[in-house]
Structure formats: structure tokens, C-alpha cells
Design a protein around this nucleic acid. Structure first.
Lengths: 184, 184
DNA sequence: CATAATCTGGAACGAGCATTTCAGTTATCG
DNA sequence: CGATAACTGAAATGCTCGTTCCAGATTATG
């Protein structure tokens, strides 16, 4: 029972995580175990073993990136200007997605429990903002909320796919939020 | 100079194309050469050779599916009720995407000249409708049109990704088109 | 109908990747 | 310091796929 991880194992685990995280911000990079290992200055086997598989490593890396975004979402969900908060949050979320374009694509179709849980929290934050916006009469109430969150989530992802800069994000947000306003 | 394709070659080429087309409508199917060949009742080599590579086969299959959609877009672009036409067209486009969810994913990142050209025509049709809508004062003119078409295109794709049925498509369209109306 | 060119199927090949293995290294503990 | 257990790196493994090869079948031609 006296076998805590060895010091070098802990260090290498962190190196692998850092390398994967850094690579997530680089588009057009293969993101293979080999590449991650080289970036981390480790062997391929070590990288895989550190998290018990490539999937888990990517899950952890993306989760690490997502955590502050979720925190920001929680913070903004408490705002008493819900629509402004929603716009701010979505702008940041879109910028994040654009900067880590690779993250979404690389996670597709693999078990990623941490990331999935965090994503659910993002949706919850958005739901809170929409709900508050509705109570304030600033968000339309004629459409089911789960579809609205889907639209919002997909829009955030869409921005990333279209390789957008800040101005483009702004246009996306304008159209989206105007579409979410009460239908006269 | 007297070597037209042999009759069986022509037939098999069609079988391969049909099989690929049919498989594009089935989600969660691997869409490997093996699978296509089995479905077509051919050998793997034959399928590949028929179009000179898997990429070209997929390009041709998707193009075949896309052609009627493009024709419909051209038709609707001539409407004198541009916003209604836009909504109709996008609804059909989204339904198409939802039905052929696999098409988009499988074409990603491979040379597909035919499909790319057709996609450009889709964008052109949408541009015409937006432009007509603007002249009629029914579509906002305060945002760059190329970003609007991007938003529209990505939205169509987003619907497919979220596995949507007709009601869901309708909600998407409502939000999107309300967002495209002139900003009072 | 015979000959030659073309085409077919499916086995063999090769490239790309995650994972496992294992001989050697390194940390930990008495 | 020395023994032991854990960890490491890189080669080997195994798997998925697209593509190529080729002996045999099929079609066109005169």
C-alpha cells in the first residue's frame, strides 16, 4: 500500500499533458502519440502509459483547457444582465474554439468522460442565461430551450470550423443573438 | 485509339457508384472500400479502379446527390419572394444534410473537385437570395454577405451534426432567419 | 471462332498509428 | 549503499485501410 507514483513518473505525466495541450492549439498538426512524445521529450510508450491510453490523455488535455471556460460560464450565469452575459460568454467560447480548433475534431467519437461532463456544464450555464433572459423579456420563449442550446453550441463550433477571426465572431454573434430575441 | 470502356466496366462503375451513394445515407457505417465493394457485389480492386481511387468515387457519389439540390437552389434563387425562397431552400438543404450526414464528414480533407464546385454554386444561390432579400428590405444589410453565407452554410451543416428531425430544423430556421432580418 | 486486349477478384503490400513488450535505467527505502 | 520495485524508451506488434498486382475470366474484333 506504500507505492505512490515515483517522482519521475509524475513529472513525465505532466510533460505529456503539457505537450498535448500545446499541440491542441496548433492546427494542421497530426496529434499522434509520436508527435506528442517528441514534443514532450519522452518515448511514445511513456506518453501512452501516463494516462492509460491516448484517448484519456486527450480528454485530460482538453478538460484542462475547458475548465477555466466553464468557470467563466458559471460566473457570467450569475449576471443580472443575462443577454449581455450570454453574448460575452459566447464570444469567449467562440474565441476559445477558434484557438483550439483541433480540440473538437480530435475528441470526436472517443470516450472522453471529463470533457463530456464539462461540456454539460457549459450547456447548463447557457441555459441559465437563456432562462434569465426570458424572465427579463429579452429572449424569445416560443422555442424549446434544448434546441436553442443546441443551436448555440453548434454555432460556437461552426465558428471554429470556418477559421474565424474576431470580426467574424462578432457577425456570428449578432445574427445569433438577434435571432434569439423575442419575436415581436 | 479504338478502346472505349468495355461494357462490363461501365456497368461495374455504375454499381460502385450506386453502392457508395446508398451507403452515404446510412450513418454509422464505415464506408471503407471493402464495404462498398461488398454492397456492390464487386471486388475491392474493381471499386477502386472504377474511379481511380476512393476519393474520386466519393466525390462522384456526393456530387450526384448534390446536383438536384443545386438545381433546386437555382430555381428558388429566381423567386420574387426571396426570404420565403431562402427558408424553403435552407429547409431542403438541411433535410438533405441530415439524411446524408455521412457525406460531409467523409469528404472532409480530401480532394473533391466536383463536390467543391457544386458547393460553390449553393453559396451563389444563397447569395442571390440574400441580395434580393436586401433589395426588398427584408434582409439586413449591415453585415458582410460572405460571412452571412458562411453562417448559413455552417448552420446547415450543424443541423446534420445534431441529428435533427423536421421540428428541429424548423427551430434552426426560425432563429437563423429572424437573425437575418433587418435590425430595426 | 480465334485472338488479343481489357477487365475482374482477392490476395499481397505498404503506410499510418496506438499499444505492448522488455532489457536497461532510475528512484525509493531499509 | 545495496536491493528491489517502478519506470523508461524504442523496437516490435497488431490492426485498419487504400492501393497494387496478377493469374484467370470476359469482351471486343476481324
Amino acid at each position: 500500500m506504500s507505492t505512490p507514483s515515483r517522482a519521475d513518473a509524475v513529472r513525465n505525466r505532466q510533460l505529456a499533458l503539457d505537450a498535448a495541450t500545446a499541440l491542441l492549439a496548433e492546427p494542421d498538426t497530426a496529434l499522434t502519440v509520436e508527435v506528442i512524445a517528441r514534443k514532450a521529450g519522452l518515448g511514445a510508450g511513456t506518453v501512452v502509459r501516463a494516462f492509460g491510453g491516448k484517448d484519456a490523455l486527450l480528454d485530460a488535455a482538453v478538460a484542462g483547457l475547458l475548465r477555466p471556460v466553464v468557470a467563466r460560464g458559471r460566473e457570467l450565469a450569475a449576471s443580472n444582465e443575462p443577454v449581455r452575459a450570454l453574448r460575452t460568454f459566447l464570444g469567449e467560447l467562440m474565441a476559445f474554439q477558434a484557438a483550439h480548433h483541433a480540440a473538437g475534431d480530435n475528441l470526436r467519437g472517443l470516450a472522453a468522460p471529463e470533457t463530456t461532463a464539462l461540456r454539460a456544464e457549459l450547456v447548463t450555464a447557457v441555459e441559465i442565461m437563456i432562462d434569465a433572459g426570458r424572465r427579463a423579456g429579452q429572449v424569445r420563449g416560443d422555442l424549446p430551450i434544448d434546441v436553442l442550446t443546441t443551436i448555440i453550441g453548434e454555432s460556437a463550433y461552426a465558428v471554429a470550423r470556418s477559421g474565424s477571426g474576431p470580426e467574424r465572431i462578432d457577425v456570428f454573434l449578432t445574427v445569433l443573438l438577434d435571432g434569439l430575441r423575442p419575436s415581436t
